[in-house]
């Protein structure tokens, strides 16, 4: 079996062409990037607003849970059937949304209350507080939300290929149809590999974005990102 998979993966003809691995991986990546970016475009500002004002925090929790219960596959199929295939991408956006939203919200809420109080007391306006204090300190959890969203979308995109969008899932479904298990296994491995690579890239991005002082603080307080810092 392993030799079959290796043979399939090493066959150059499987990598090139319209249906090849390279093109499908590219499509897969593109869909995922699009879905997560589009979701972040709405979820980050909303999460910042709710975290900053404290208004609608009940909504975040309720909404995220409700969204998790949503059958994503059903949504993808539904949108694909009702509209055209590419509209199914909207389902991926919907899928990515709650993880980014709750990550952003949790990030803002986890900013040490003393720092926020000091920012207010020294005369920062609401906007200055958000940009200069809350956002930089929320980035760790915010990026955690983005990484969560990306992994979920990566996995779902694989399944969603069957509405004809393409992506690495296409190879998997095709392999099943024609009874080529070496192809199915290879596709599964490639999907996992792509997910790991993208996650690593996002980890690198997180490292670049999060200010050094925040990273040090997290390391020093036992890396408990959730909840406020314990007051002594």
């Amino acid at each position: 079996m392993i030799t079959d998979i290796a043979a399939w993966l090493l066959d150059p003809s499987n990598w090139t062409g319209d249906e090849g691995v390279l093109r499908q991986a590219w499509l897969h990546l593109l869909y995922c990037l699009f879905a997560v970016c589009a979701a972040a475009l709405f979820a980050v500002p909303l999460g910042l607003y709710i975290g900053h004002t404290g208004r609608g925090s009940v909504f975040v929790v309720g909404f995220s849970n409700a969204m998790r219960a949503l059958p994503t596959l059903g949504l993808v199929t539904g949108l694909a059937v009702l509209f055209r295939g590419s509209v199914a991408l909207a389902a991926l956006v919907v899928l990515a949304f709650p993880a980014v939203l709750s990550g952003t919200y949790a990030g803002v809420r986890a900013v040490p209350s003393q720092a926020v109080d000091a920012a207010k007391g020294m005369g920062m306006t609401s906007k200055q507080r958000l940009w200069q204090v809350e956002l930089p300190n929320a980035l760790t959890l915010l990026m955690g939300g983005v990484r969560n969203a990306m992994l979920q979308v990566m996995a779902t995109t694989a399944v969603a290929a069957y509405v004809g969008l393409g992506g690495l899932g296409q190879l998997l479904i095709e392999g099943q149809t024609i009874g080529r298990y070496d192809q199915m296994a290879s596709a599964a491995i490639l999907i996992a590999l792509l997910a790991v690579l993208v996650d690593l890239a996002l980890a690198g991005l997180t490292w670049l974005l999060v200010p050094r002082g925040v990273t040090l603080t997290a390391a020093n307080t036992g890396a408990r990102p959730r909840g406020r810092r314990k007051q002594r």
């Binding site: 040490p112 003393q114 720092a115 109080d117 000091a118 920012a119 007391g121 020294m122 200069q132 204090v133 930089p136 300190n137 200010p211 050094r212 002082g213 925040v214 040090l216 603080t217 007051q231 002594r232």
Partner: peptide
């Protein structure tokens, strides 16, 4: 001027 308990320094700034 405003000084609070535990200083309330900004973790992300030197």
């Amino acid at each position: 001027g405003y000084v609070i308990q535990q200083a309330g320094l900004f973790p992300h700034r030197t």
